[in-house]
Simulated scan of single mutants.
Amino acid sequence: MEKKNVTSITIIHLLGLQIPHSIRFLIFFLFLIIYCVTICGNLLIITLVSCSKTLHSPMYFFLSQLSVSDILLITDILPNMLHSVLFKEAILSFSDCHTQFYFFAFSEMSECLLLTAMSYDRYLAICKPLHYNLAMNFQICWIMVTACWFLSFLAITIHTLMTSQLKFCGPGIVDHFFCDLDPILQLSCYDTTNVQLEVTFVNVIIVITPFFITIASYFYIISAILKISSITGRHKVFLTCSSHLTVVSIFYGTLVCVYLLPSKGQSGNTTKFISLLYTVGTPLLNPIIYSLRNQDLKQAVAKIINHSNQ
């Protein structure tokens, strides 16, 4: 393997988003508002699910875990990005860059698995309603959630161990707003083909396989909905999974655009914009989508407001 004749990396310069100076403060406050709204929205869902007895069901339990993942993701990404917006770049130590990638990948993988668990929950509720209470009790829910977090931890630990065996060379300039795997690997002194193959293998297990399970679940869900004779009945049943289907479409749609479509011909700014959709947009939209389309959450909020006014 050919070695680059450059110095080892200790500092990473994240170039961030290329924003004109005239609107820099406007973009900064926009992202700051997005961060605050995202944290508050997801904390609200976690609080409602914990405190409201009407929301003590598997679907909302999984939703609260999804909110935890969203909070972890946006907290890992946005503070450094806010710094880079103000100062045109963010400077991290190489270990901090690895840490940021660790928590980013951990939260993304956990979100993939949690969305799959939620699709399985909807499959049982719609296609196997008589067996639902037995097949999706809270003990099974806890096992599924624990498995989601553990598998995510295991997968990203494997990623970290593989990348730690590489040597990285300067200059440590990354044309992105966060430390993703591909930009990090591009700084390696050596050929990274074997590492990329191992990472791909892990991703097939943790990301691609859950995606196909989700697709299969919705194939059976849609088939079951189409068998309902009443249009009103179809609409009512579809509403129970429409929010989740919307979130899944946004999440996997942006991942496909960034990681599966050919990067040739795409500018760096295009890749950054698409990356914004799943690192910042998805955590923001998830609580909004579930809140707007879910009567149970609206009623739980209304009860809290009415109780506080009494």
Results as ranks from 00 to 15, higher is better:
residue 219 F to C: 08
residue 227 K to L: 14
residue 208 I to M: 07
residue 244 H to P: 07
residue 208 I to D: 10
residue 219 F to Y: 11
residue 215 I to T: 03
residue 230 S to I: 04
residue 250 I to R: 00
residue 240 T to S: 14
residue 213 I to A: 06
residue 215 I to P: 03
residue 233 G to W: 15
residue 229 S to I: 06
residue 226 L to W: 08
residue 228 I to Y: 11
residue 223 S to C: 15
residue 229 S to Q: 15
residue 226 L to C: 11
residue 250 I to E: 05
residue 227 K to I: 10
residue 233 G to T: 12
residue 217 S to Q: 04
residue 208 I to S: 12
residue 212 F to D: 01
residue 241 C to A: 12
residue 216 A to Q: 00
residue 206 I to H: 00
residue 242 S to D: 09
residue 232 T to L: 03
residue 231 I to L: 14
residue 208 I to G: 05
residue 224 A to E: 13
residue 214 T to W: 00
residue 240 T to F: 12
residue 211 F to N: 01
residue 241 C to T: 15
residue 217 S to T: 10
residue 232 T to V: 01
residue 248 V to E: 04
residue 226 L to Q: 12
residue 231 I to H: 08
residue 223 S to R: 15
residue 213 I to G: 07
residue 203 N to F: 13
residue 247 V to E: 08
residue 202 V to R: 06
residue 206 I to S: 01
residue 240 T to M: 10
residue 244 H to M: 12
residue 202 V to K: 04
residue 231 I to V: 11
residue 250 I to W: 03
residue 207 V to A: 08
residue 233 G to K: 14
residue 210 P to Y: 02
residue 222 I to E: 05
residue 232 T to Q: 09
residue 202 V to M: 07
residue 232 T to P: 01
residue 232 T to W: 03
residue 220 Y to G: 09
residue 221 I to C: 00
residue 229 S to K: 15
residue 236 K to R: 14
residue 218 Y to F: 11
residue 210 P to K: 06
residue 211 F to I: 01
residue 211 F to R: 04
residue 238 F to I: 09
residue 214 T to G: 03
residue 221 I to K: 00
residue 207 V to P: 00
residue 236 K to Q: 11
residue 228 I to F: 09
residue 229 S to Y: 14
residue 208 I to Q: 05
residue 248 V to F: 01
residue 202 V to D: 02
residue 240 T to G: 09
residue 206 I to D: 02
residue 242 S to A: 13
residue 244 H to L: 15
residue 222 I to Y: 05
residue 244 H to W: 12
residue 218 Y to Q: 04
residue 209 T to S: 13
residue 208 I to L: 13
residue 243 S to V: 06
residue 209 T to G: 08
residue 248 V to Q: 00
residue 207 V to Y: 09
residue 240 T to H: 11
residue 221 I to Y: 05
residue 239 L to R: 12
residue 205 I to Y: 07
residue 245 L to N: 00
residue 223 S to A: 14
residue 247 V to T: 14
residue 208 I to Y: 11
residue 225 I to K: 09
residue 227 K to D: 09
residue 206 I to N: 04
residue 204 V to N: 13
residue 207 V to R: 11
residue 204 V to F: 13
residue 210 P to F: 06
residue 219 F to K: 07
residue 242 S to N: 09
residue 245 L to D: 00
residue 250 I to V: 06
residue 246 T to G: 02
residue 221 I to W: 03
residue 232 T to H: 01
residue 228 I to M: 11
residue 227 K to S: 13
residue 217 S to H: 04
residue 241 C to I: 07
residue 243 S to I: 08
residue 234 R to A: 01
residue 212 F to A: 04
residue 247 V to C: 15
residue 249 S to N: 08
residue 209 T to H: 11
residue 231 I to T: 13
residue 243 S to W: 06
residue 245 L to C: 04
residue 244 H to K: 03
residue 226 L to G: 03
residue 218 Y to H: 08
residue 215 I to K: 06
residue 211 F to Y: 10
residue 235 H to D: 13
residue 232 T to E: 08
residue 243 S to Y: 06
residue 244 H to T: 13
residue 234 R to H: 06
residue 238 F to C: 08
residue 204 V to H: 10
